[in-house]
Write a protein that binds this DNA or RNA. Structure first.
Lengths: 210, 210
DNA sequence: GTCTATACTACGATAGAC
DNA sequence: GTCTATCGTAGTATAGAC
């Protein structure tokens, strides 16, 4: 499939060089076709860029969706909600450490710091739903109704995971290694899980002001 | 100063579009000069890129260096080390939220996920020293000698701060606002400070295995 | 659907005027 | 130091052959 190959290459190119920096000729050549097929399939460079955004949103959701922990229909107990959060973050950490994620992480960060229409597509897909679900689970797990503090707590949880990608080189420097090793990953997961529990415990203990 | 104007523009352009995507003509024009002055002052596009890396390293260090908390000569008490960590992170959060940081955050993330020679320059500057100091302070604050767990803890602390930049749009979506507001910032700082304390407490309590 | 051919614009580097 | 002029290359878009 030409379109699939084009997308795979385009993800890497747009991620690394941005919309303006990437070359449609290079992308087409690397995909084994010619530039004009981009015009045909996507209407041009910008169309391909948006298609990449959708593609990334789908890729990101693929391993997250279908997870019962993310099923918004269920209303779990506080203990179940806590367990679901741990489950989500465990998957999330694996995702951040996977090599494929390296291809599109910069794409997302670019859209995070300088959003275009592509960010809305990504957020509207899996990302927004996943994050709102996280907030809901924090609320349930802590027995709090005020979502504001839950949202802030979710942000700090999120950061502990995304840093593994967004600050990958610094993390590796700190761990004095060239690639994340199994024992490092296990220690990181344990540390993050502990931090999540500590945050949930504190939010549960502090009585919600009325 | 032409060089200073060139650097200011180049930071934004290289950050957004990367080395290959940015246009020297555009940078020069925005700085009110012509492309050949980049050749004259920096030897070419690549020279300007590296100069930008140095410039960013300096900018990042400017508000961090000179901080007594970062003075590596001193050997503080555990309580002082904890206090110093809080001080560093408070400054760091302010930095991540400042508008100027938006100009070069993508530059750093790009180098984090796809390091070039520019990353070494940035790490060799303030960044590496700051992070190693953080690890040292965590060790002192927790009374632990094994730096590995301290390094992993430092990574999770770091993530809670950098997420405000690297996932800015998502954070704002979660907080349901268009820009970080004073009360959100206060709540974020409190949450992060609490998380840091909880991590330090846990590492202090768990006896170091011999 | 895929490719060739073509038109036009913009790129970085460099040489040389002032 | 700063600029103009120019070179060779590479960019996107489009029309049309097959």
């Amino acid at each position: 499939m030409v379109q699939h190959r084009l997308l795979d290459i385009a993800v890497r190119e747009f991620s690394l060089k941005g919309l303006e920096g990437a070359s449609t000729r290079d992308i087409a050549a690397a995909a084994g076709t010619v530039m004009s097929s981009i015009t045909y399939h996507y209407g041009g460079k910008e169309g391909l860029y948006l298609a990449v955004a959708d593609y990334i949103a789908e890729q990101m959701g693929r391993d997250m969706i279908g997870d019962p922990a993310l099923d918004e229909a269920t209303e779990p107990s506080p203990a179940d909600a806590r367990h679901a959060l741990h489950h989500i973050f465990d998957r999330f950490i694996n995702k951040m450490l996977s090599v494929q994620t390296g291809d599109w992480s910069l794409f997302i960060v670019r859209e995070q710091t300088n959003p275009t229409a592509a960010f809305e597509r990504i957020w509207s897909g899996m990302m927004g739903r996943m994050m709102e679900r996280m907030v809901a689970l924090v609320c349930i797990a802590t027995g709090r109704r005020d979502a504001k503090i839950a949202r802030i707590a979710a942000i700090t949880m999120l950061g502990q995971v995304t840093v593994l990608r967004a600050s990958r080189a610094s993390c590796l420097k700190l761990l004095q290694t060239d690639d994340f090793e199994a024992e490092d990953i296990a220690a990181l997961k344990a540390q993050i899980a502990n931090n999540i529990d500590a945050t949930l415990d504190r939010l549960s203990a502090e009585q919600e002001p009325q």
